[in-house]
């Protein structure tokens, strides 16, 4: 007598599919205006949140409440986030009729990238005066991001 009545156990295949979905969910092409607009809003929101976090970190650093090492790490991570957001959005193909959105958002992202770079450099040199100056610029940039976000959202 041999074995009978086997069933295949498990659902690991489902998991695999989900993992793949998850991995690809963030990068698909933006084909329609709505998608593009949504990506623009998401990018600006990400930028806004990162700038706000950077401001908190900078304030702590300027007030001498944090170690130079941890400030450097925090700022490096935020710079990476901003430049990743910038690259991801700038390299997206805008569908016809969305050039205004692109013209509003991409320069902001580029500027933010540059400022974050400057901040990281100043932080690594523990140049507190320069940091305070850049903190002001960042605040002003944050204001413009907010305005642009309102515009793009309409």
């Amino acid at each position: 007598m041999t074995r009978s009545g086997r069933r295949t156990p498990g659902r690991p295949a489902v998991l695999l599919v989900l993992l793949t979905l998850l991995a690809t969910a963030c990068v698909g092409p933006a084909l329609r205006d709505d998608d593009y607009r949504r990506k623009a809003v998401a990018s600006l929101e990400q930028l806004e949140a990162t700038i706000a976090g950077t401001e908190v970190a900078l304030d702590a650093a300027i007030a001498g409440r944090s170690f130079a090492t941890s400030t450097a790490v925090t700022l490096r991570q935020h710079e990476e986030t901003v430049s990743w957001t910038h690259t991801a959005f700038a390299s997206r193909q805008p569908p016809p009729g969305t050039d205004a959105i692109r013209a509003a958002v991409v320069p902001l992202l580029a500027e933010a990238s540059a400022v974050m770079g400057d901040i990281r450099i100043a932080a690594n040199r523990t140049d507190v005066r320069r940091l305070a100056e850049l903190r002001g610029r960042l605040g002003e940039l944050g204001g413009r991001v907010e305005g642009s976000l309102r515009e793009v959202r309409r």
Partner: peptide, 18 residues
């Protein structure tokens, strides 16, 4: 209140610095 996002160990520790 400032709308900052916290998605790292560094950001978890930052409020303690503050």
């Amino acid at each position: 209140p400032v709308g900052a996002e916290a998605e790292s160990v560094a950001m978890t520790a930052l409020p303690v610095s503050v």
